[in-house]
């Protein structure tokens, strides 16, 4: 399918003489029939070799993923953590003050967070915090320290915070109205203890099952964020790879992402069992 897109990895307005094109195609085995190229790729894959990158001619696809993934992982993990903490806190807070002005305003902010796409929020953040106020760096670079993570992480986490807050609020309200909570209250427990020991865990179940899709959303969201902030993560390489017809790089990242998503879903399923005793029993 990758080969179906018109154009080749070495095409340019500066068209090469035929004999040079042949030399280059031969060097990358692009002169062989497709099925042969495919078999070559598969046999490499089995050995953990994703092949050479056509665009980054000094690097293999494995190396590029090796340098880019830790960056995306750090970014994604931080965004996920931020989203969870702030989202759950805001959601519980709103649930406990249900139908007050505070609840309404938290939910209004959350709704806005869901509706505004990252590619609008991110440049606004840069404009305000980096260019106008100069508190934070405007882009990614080696010459600034940890602060370079702040804006991308916030941009990436914002929609997830909003979503998780709404989820938590809804499920918290459900749980607070359930019989076992009423029993706990009847036994004289204060609100804090009820929330902490009884309500929080079951209320988090929907949030947990949302973690899988959230991880996927953060992965895809990071494609946009990485592009805007110029972060050398997987998403950026994926976009460049597709535009440059860097077949091996695109394929390699797809294979890698697929493995990652399967793995994340497995982890979520296992965690589900840990939190919900009903699932463990079955």
């Amino acid at each position: 399918m990758v080969h179906a897109a018109p154009g080749g990895p070495f095409d340019d307005e500066r068209v090469l003489p035929a004999e040079i094109e042949e030399n280059i195609a031969a060097a990358y085995h692009l002169d062989e029939p497709l099925h042969k190229q495919f078999i070559r790729y598969l046999s490499g894959l089995v050995h953990g070799d994703l092949g050479p990158s056509y665009r980054y001619r000094d690097h293999t696809v494995g190396e590029l993923i090796g340098t880019a993934f830790p960056v995306s992982l750090k970014l994604g993990a931080m965004a996920m953590l931020l989203a969870l903490v702030v989202g759950v806190a805001a959601g519980s807070f709103a649930a406990l003050r249900r139908n007050t002005l505070l609840d309404r305003s938290v939910m209004a902010v959350a709704m806005t967070g869901i509706s505004i796409p990252i590619f609008v929020i991110a440049p606004l953040l840069v404009l305000l915090l980096a260019v106008r106020l100069q508190w934070l760096p405007a882009g990614w670079s080696g010459n600034v320290g940890a602060t370079k993570f702040v804006l991308p992480v916030i941009a990436l986490a914002l929609p997830q915070i909003a979503y998780i807050a709404r989820l938590t609020r809804a499920s918290m309200i459900d749980v607070l109205a359930s019989d076992f909570v009423r029993t706990a209250r009847a036994q004289g427990l204060g609100t804090t203890a009820v929330v902490r020991y009884h309500a929080l865990k079951p209320a988090l179940l929907p949030v947990l099952s949302y973690m899988g899709p959230a991880a996927a959303a953060i992965l895809t969201g990071s494609v946009v964020v990485e592009e805007i902030f110029g972060i050398p993560g997987l998403g950026q390489f994926f976009v460049r790879g597709a535009l440059n017809r860097d077949y091996t790089l695109v394929l390699g990242i797809v294979v890698f992402y697929a493995a990652l998503v399967v793995l994340l879903n497995l982890v979520v399923d296992i965690l589900y069992g840990v939190i919900d005793p009903r699932i463990r029993q079955r």
Binding site: P123, Q134, A138, G139, S141, G142, I228
Partner: peptide, 21 residues
């Protein structure tokens, strides 16, 4: 000499304004 890879012209301008390049 550090050559910073910045693919978006807008990002580059922002970084220039912020004194990073």
């Amino acid at each position: 000499v550090w050559h910073h890879v910045i693919t978006q012209e807008m990002t580059e301008l922002n970084r220039y304004r912020a004194g990073e390049i």
